[in-house]
Design a protein around this nucleic acid. Structure first.
Length: 275
DNA sequence: CTTTTGACCTGACAGC
DNA sequence: TGCTGTCAGGTCAAAA
């Protein structure tokens, strides 16, 4: 499920339910996520109040405080994770690994069949955490510009698709949006990152912004459903121009969409529209 | 240093 | 019905 727009949708959906709320307990049914959920976490987090939720790339960071003590709960949704709000107790299913129980009785439930997600505690400065310190720019920040990508790509021969998916360059762009953004920018996924002009990077940055923002809006339109009971958030409504459309006609020029493998991930592109 | 490959894990689906 | 193989929204760590 989660690329940046889904994580951002989750953040926005959770915030009104969590902001200012005190955590009563943390129920860990399965601690074997990507990394073990720390044994100390339930005790550490109980009694703390969630002041805010931030997002860094695909990481969610709950700002937790309890008078003197403060820290951040880090959550990553991996490939298959989701967070849902339960106003009433619901029997946990097989993959419902953790519940955050609030003083008001609401449960925030982490579900993650593949267990590629993470739940960790960060003491002190968030930016110094090993998982966060090396991250690249936020694609929706003002600092993320064509000039930035142009500069950091000089001399690199990695294909632009993999360059875009490198979180140490820019965070949050997953497989779907890398494909979609490259299509809208008219750039072939195999093009060497170091051989793209400043002009083309400027257009690419614009495409990335538009694609992500449109997806967030699509997710935003169904936040209510997400926060409610059935949990299907979504940018599923977002219509794809190339992703998953292997063999289908390009929606702009009708040429058949091609696919290939890059770094064990599927890429889709229009051989006529993308060079 | 860069680039590639393997690893983690479950579920859905196609084909036999 | 059931087996096997492939693929899926991520990304770290080791190998080359």
């Amino acid at each position: 499920m989660p690329e940046l727009p889904e994580v951002e949708t989750t953040r926005r959906g959770l915030l009104p339910h969590l902001k200012g709320q005190k955590i009563r307990a943390l129920i860990v049914r399965e601690k074997r996520l990507r990394w073990l959920v720390p044994d100390f976490l339930p005790e550490r987090i109980s009694g703390k109040t969630v002041l805010d939720i931030a997002r860094r790339g695909k990481y969610l960071l709950f700002d937790c405080r309890d008078g003197k003590e403060s820290g951040h709960l880090l959550i990553h949704l991996g490939m298959s994770g989701s967070l849902r709000i339960l106003d009433r107790p619901v029997q946990p299913g097989k993959h419902d690994h953790v519940d955050i129980v609030l003083e008001n009785g609401v449960h925030i439930r982490l579900t993650d069949p593949r267990r590629f997600g993470a739940m960790l505690w960060i003491d002190g400065a968030v930016d110094a955490h090993p998982l966060l310190e090396g991250l690249g720019l936020e694609p929706l920040s003002d600092a993320f510009t064509g000039d930035y990508l142009f500069e950091v790509s000089r001399g690199k021969k990695v294909p632009i698709k993999q360059f875009l998916m490198n979180s140490h360059i820019v965070t949050g762009i997953g497989n779907i949006y890398a494909n979609e953004a490259l299509y809208h920018a008219g750039i072939h996924p195999k093009r060497a990152a170091g051989r793209l002009s400043l002009q083309r990077y400027t257009r690419l940055v614009q495409s990335i912004r538009e694609t992500l923002n449109r997806a967030i809006e699509a997710g935003g339109s169904s936040i209510r459903d997400f926060v409610g009971s059935n949990g299907e958030a979504g940018y599923f409504q977002l219509d794809y121009w190339v992703y998953g459309r292997d063999g289908l006609p390009c929606r702009r020029c009708s040429a058949p969409i091609h696919s290939l493998r890059q770094g064990q991930r599927s890429s889709f592109y229009c051989p006529r529209c993308q060079r």
